[in-house]
Design a binder for these strands. Structure first.
Length: 115
DNA sequence: TCTATGACTCCGG
DNA sequence: CCCGGAGCCATAG
């Protein structure tokens, strides 16, 4: 059973990504930092690569630190990721999120709003 | 066991 | 932010 160990890390990533609201995006480093390992941003991307088995994980809402759709090539077709984001009201320009900082969603901020 | 790779990010120029 | 290079860490071969 190859499960539990990787699930511990992946599930944490999935859980955060899953919490990304409709029409919002998040960065790998932001998620990694939230998990307590800001250096493991690449692992977040790796987890996303394995997320294709997770239908609940909106991986299209996860982009790099500048809002670039670095993972679009891993989606079906050639621009599925862009289409998904546009369908959520997010404008894409040259594979990059327009007004990225406006749509960015920080998981830590999600906790702060808890109050 | 060791080496190579990657949906990243930070640093210096 | 553009460009090139280094650090990072888990997975695959």
């Amino acid at each position: 059973m190859v499960l539990k160990e990787e699930l511990n890390f992946f599930e944490k990533v999935y859980d955060v990504v899953r919490e990304i609201p409709f029409g919002r995006v998040c960065s790998y480093g932001l998620i990694a930092r939230y998990l307590g390992s800001p250096q493991s941003a690449r692992m977040v991307g790796w987890a996303m690569n394995a997320s294709h088995i997770k239908e609940d994980v909106p991986a299209h809402r996860v982009v790099n630190r500048i809002g670039l759709l670095t993972g679009k090539q891993h989606f079906e077709g050639t621009n599925l990721m862009q289409q998904l984001l546009e369908s959520e009201g997010i404008q894409i320009k040259e594979n990059q999120v327009v007004d990225f900082e406006q749509f960015i969603w920080n998981p830590a901020d999600h906790l702060l709003t808890n109050t």
